[in-house]
Design a protein around this nucleic acid. Structure first.
Length: 450
RNA sequence: GACCCUAUCGUCUAGUGGUUAGGACACCGCCCUUUCACGGCGGGAACCGGGGUUCGAAUCCCCGUAGGGUCGCCA
């Protein structure tokens, strides 16, 4: 029997980082086994569902590159979908649930209680075979011992999570339920329901949770709990999937940097670590840096220009080769794409503002003359390349009897407006002689005013 | 309160009865570099506690302790 797994988010918030990891593990398992990955939307709580959340989930999954074989195409519950086991929105499956409940009622496995319908839960301990946790025997808690039965249909007629989750998994032929460990205790209810329907439950695999650095549950308010945070803060999706896969799973060769599609060939469930993991932002950032270094040129240019345009820098009006050359000089300097504008915006517009502190040190009247000398030396250069620029900078300084740094710092500030940035000689080459001379001249005017 | 899961450096983890307890991130030091980074080399840093089992436990068992989860007409 071929594997069918599903990711079943509820559109009541955003795509949580933990949910993203659950989706990733499901996706990996489907890809590894050649099975199907189903996306199902658990929107039974109409009061709490929002279209915004729906779009964030679909968008987030797309962004992460976790494509689904069956499920909605868009966030519209009545819109198009892929697959022949739909509808994939629970809000569209009411008739199925009603039928199932009727059957339960008919066989006295459920009963009406104050307008709601409750399921007759077994009083016996339930064995939960789990691919990650092993066999878990779940006994009744003290409260459950008083009344183990639980509501499966609200008094307003709306079916409840436990019921719809089981019915859908059953109807959709789900073979493996891979979900967060927060569902482990509830699984006894689900198994009892599967038994009541006379079918064998799917295999279960409960994965540990992701906690904050101080070991607390990641609430919606925690910065970074939503995938959107990473989309907006300069992270490459491949770094994010790489990082979250490392929370609870280890590459057999102990590798740290890899692509999700690489793990898709070796991933398996029993290897998953059983303890919760704390989220380490530093390691994610490092992985992002690694992926920026190793991604293809075009992808790097694309993500960088996006970051630039997001911050209001227009690259479109510049020749493509100029843009690429400029971006090449910042590639190994950035850890996130949001840093790209800081390091490269000066390439795309004139410098009119300078670092205040540095200006006090570099833009002084005494520097007007040295910069003048440098300009003429630069003018006479036959080739405006990094090596030639470097040697001119140093020889000019030495002729003037000043330390190279005394000339280099004002030059950098003049060219970029900042004290940090790409390699000075390379940046000057990319900028081109004309712009460099112009910016040097503009800086001289500032120096006279000081 | 009850039930369930878990427990190796600060963090993610390797380890499945015999290892100088390994790696990565982070941190510290040195080198490289007249920007900021990168990089190179080196360093500190862990088996929660107590009982067993065994010739021998990080590894197996029990009891504590701690953390997390669940016990909804939320999902």
């Amino acid at each position: 029997m071929s594997v069918r797994v599903r990711f079943a988010p509820s559109p009541t918030g955003y795509l949580h980082i933990g949910g993203a990891r659950t989706a990733l593990f499901n996706w990996l398992y489907a890809r590894r086994t050649g099975g199907k990955f189903v996306l199902r939307i658990e929107d039974t709580d109409t009061a709490r569902n929002t279209q915004e959340a729906m779009d964030a989930i679909i968008g987030g999954l797309h962004w992460l590159g976790l494509d689904w074989d069956e499920g909605p195409v868009t966030g519209d519950a009545t819109g198009a979908s892929r697959g022949d086991r739909g509808p994939y929105f629970q809000s569209q499956r009411k008739a199925d649930y009603e039928q199932r409940v009727e059957a339960l009622l008919f066989r006295d496995l459920a009963y009406e209680h104050e307008g709601a319908i409750k399921f007759r839960m077994t009083r016996e301990p339930v064995k939960i075979p789990d691919l990650i946790c092993g066999d878990v025997v779940r006994e009744l808690t003290d409260r459950e011992a008083e009344d183990p039965d639980f509501v499966i249909v609200r008094s307003d007629g709306q079916p409840v999570f436990h019921l719809v989750n089981v019915v859908d998994d059953l109807d959709m032929g789900i073979t493996h339920v891979i979900r967060g460990e927060d569902h482990l205790s509830n699984t006894s209810k689900h198994i009892a329901l599967f038994n009541a329907f006379g079918v064998e439950p799917p295999k279960f695999a409960h994965i540990p949770l992701i906690l904050t650095q101080d070991g607390k549950k990641m609430s919606k308010r925690f910065e970074g709990s939503s995938i959107q945070y990473y989309q907006e803060n300069g992270y490459a999706p491949e770094a994010v999937t790489n990082y979250i896969s490392l929370l609870g799973w280890t590459h057999p060769e102990q590798k740290d940097v890899f692509l999700a599609k690489e793990i898709a060939e070796i991933f398996d469930l029993p290897q998953i670590h059983r303890a919760n993991a704390k989220f380490d932002h530093d390691k994610l950032k490092w992985l992002n840096f690694e992926h920026i270094k190793s991604m293809g040129d075009d992808r790097y240019y694309e993500l960088s220009t996006h970051a630039l345009s997001d911050s209001g820098v227009d690259t479109k009006s510049h020749p493509i080769d100029y843009v690429k050359a400029a971006l090449d000089t910042v590639r190994e300097k950035i850890k996130t794409f949001t840093e790209v504008p800081n390091f490269s915006a000066f390439y795309f517009h004139d410098v009119s503002e300078y670092d205040e502190k540095a200006m006090g040190k570099s833009f002084i009247p005494e520097n007007v003359e040295p910069i003048e000398k440098l300009k003429s030396a630069l003018q006479s250069l036959s080739s405006f390349d990094p090596l030639a620029i470097e040697s001119v900078l140093k020889s000019t300084a030495s002729e003037l009897g000043m330390k190279p740094g005394k000339l280099i710092h004002p030059t950098r500030l003049a060219c970029t407006g900042s004290t940090v940035g790409p390699s000075l000689y390379h940046l000057m080459e990319v900028l081109g002689r004309e712009k460099v001379i112009a910016r040097l001249s503009a800086a001289q005017e500032r120096m006279k005013k000081e």
